[in-house]
């Protein structure tokens, strides 16, 4: 269950930095290891940049979770952009429609424990990433 949550805008590069910093502060508070902090913050950066560059911006929902004494953090990044037609293909390494290296989606997926993507052409993209301590 979610014990506290926060919605932050994801419209500019500065917004993305604030989301990264907020999540990092929460993870320090909940005593996540430096490696876990680095992985989630990096994944947020990849997905957040996709939302900014391809999705035209959106929002980030940050949640602190508690389940059977385990603490977790879930970050849901949503945009109202063109969406992804072929999610399987987009999740393959080295797949990119932009000028990135193509590690964005697949790389971010490898960095978190739970990665959930929901996207339809014309209806935007919503990506949920969860980590547990």
């Amino acid at each position: 269950m979610s014990v506290s949550s926060k919605v932050l805008p994801m419209r500019t590069e500065e917004d993305l930095m604030i989301v990264r910093q907020t999540v990092k502060a929460w993870m320090i508070e909940q005593e996540f290891s430096l490696l876990e902090q680095t992985k989630l913050v990096t994944a947020i950066s990849e997905i957040g940049r996709n939302a900014l560059v391809y999705g035209g911006g959106g929002s980030a929902l940050l949640e602190q979770l508690l389940e059977n004494c385990r603490v977790g953090i879930r970050v849901t990044i949503e945009d109202q952009g063109p969406g992804i037609a072929d999610i399987e293909q987009a999740l393959q390494d080295a797949y990119s429609t932009g000028n990135g290296l193509g590690f964005g989606l697949s790389g971010a997926k490898r960095l978190v424990m739970d990665f959930d993507i929901c996207s339809k052409p014309g209806q935007g993209t919503r990506i949920k990433m969860t980590v547990w301590n």
């Binding site: 430096l34 490696l35 992985k39 990849e46 590690f103 790389g107 971010a108 490898r110 960095l111």
Partner: peptide
């Protein structure tokens, strides 16, 4: 830093 190195490799960089 080690955490950055591990994250970069997992990311594919």
């Amino acid at each position: 830093q080690p955490a950055i190195a591990i994250t970069m490799i997992e990311l594919g960089l």
